[in-house]
């Protein structure tokens, strides 16, 4: 009973706040001093509401005010399209570098820049980086009722059917690189409308396995539907001991491509400010993100809502980006063959 009244009170407070927000929300002013007092900080998200990028941003919007001087209001704006290239271009060329706009976009945008995808206007190295809130392990899983328990079992297999959502997603690129550079007999079946759809195809035995983000496959591993077999270099608790794709590569070229493909998984939820944002403001933002990532309440809520947190500071994030972008042109071309960037 007590619990309910607390909930109810919260709910009512929420409603009141919403109404208040409608009528007295403060307009964003031009940023002058270093403090955020009375300002509104906007987080631009490159995807529609409800997805992973959006949920991280909304969680951050809730806890950031606490860690910024002057406790500004933080709001989330969704700017979907072209797998977040639209939002990245906006942050790069349109948004004012006044510290009142920051943004988050696809972690694979570095690959898009490297392979010179049409429409890319941004240069990732020129953004004022804040850091990344999470990392992500990409894994390959196979249906548990199949006899493949190790990498060697898989090598011997005549054919393993992997369902994917199409070139440009880790569900496709990860197994396609493994097929090419490790030599598995994979048959890739692209065209599923979402990774959830691939999961259903596994359930009806239309396909034998799928690759993708560990976070999203974990419930199905726990339920015993699939078993994980290979991971990319970024590990997550629980799958540290899985074989890593780079160690399986037949040659140096394959290994190099795998490195580039998985580099950006270290910065799974990147946050940047527009290029030219003043250094003192950037410092405030970086400190706030770092402090938030250690905030116990923040971590507890993240855990409850199944958003894993693994903070990577700005310097390190930028290093990851440079590692991807500093490939020689001929290598870039090779990579473009196996890693597509797209919706």
């Amino acid at each position: 009973m007590e619990r309910f009244s607390a909930n109810k009170r919260n709910a009512w407070m929420g409603w009141t706040l919403l109404l208040l927000a409608i009528f007295v929300g403060t307009p964003a002013l031009v940023f002058g001093a270093a403090a955020y007092e009375g300002k509104v900080l906007t987080i631009v998200v490159g995807y529609k509401p409800g997805g992973g990028y959006d949920r991280y941003a909304r969680l951050a919007a809730k806890y950031l005010p606490k860690h910024l001087p002057g406790n500004p209001a933080v709001v989330v704006q969704n700017m979907p399209g072209a797998n977040s290239i639209i939002s990245a271009n906006h942050l790069y060329g349109v948004a004012k570098p006044d510290g009142l706009t920051i943004g988050t976009f696809n972690n694979g945008l570095a690959t898009a820049q490297l392979t010179k995808v049409a429409g890319v206007q941004y240069d990732l190295t020129k953004f004022a980086w804040i850091g990344s809130l999470a990392s992500d392990a990409v894994i390959l899983t196979i249906r548990s009722d199949l006899p493949y328990k190790t990498v060697d079992d898989m090598r011997k297999a005549k054919e393993i059917v992997i369902g994917t959502t199409g070139p440009g997603s880790s569900t496709h690129d990860f197994p396609s690189i493994l097929k090419e550079f490790v030599g598995f007999n994979f048959k890739l079946v692209p065209g599923y409308s979402s990774s959830a759809d691939v999961m259903l195809a596994i359930e009806r035995k239309e396909v034998d396995g799928r690759a993708g983000s560990y976070d999203s496959i974990k419930p199905f591993i726990d339920r015993g539907l699939v078993r994980p077999l290979i991971r990319s270099r970024t590990a997550s608790p629980g799958i540290e001991t899985l074989p890593v794709d780079e160690d399986l590569a037949k040659d140096a070229k394959g290994k190099a491509i795998m490195v580039v493909a998985s580099a950006s998984t270290k910065i799974y939820r990147p946050y940047v400010a527009p290029p030219g944002t003043p250094a003192d403001v950037i410092k405030l933002l970086r400190d706030a993100f770092a402090a938030m990532a250690k905030d116990k309440e923040f971590l507890a809520e993240a855990k409850k809502t199944k958003l894993s947190i693994d903070f990577t500071p700005a310097e390190e994030s930028l290093k990851v980006v440079r590692e991807v972008l500093n490939q020689p042109p001929e290598m870039a071309q090779e990579i473009g063959k196996y890693i597509k960037f797209g919706e």
Partner: peptide
């Protein structure tokens, strides 16, 4: 309209990022 999931080719997008997703 949009990126086709078979080969990753943009169809009928006329160079518009907006049309990538269909």
């Amino acid at each position: 309209v949009g990126q086709d999931p078979q080969a990753g080719v943009q169809r009928f997008t006329f160079g518009q990022l907006y049309l990538w997703g269909g």
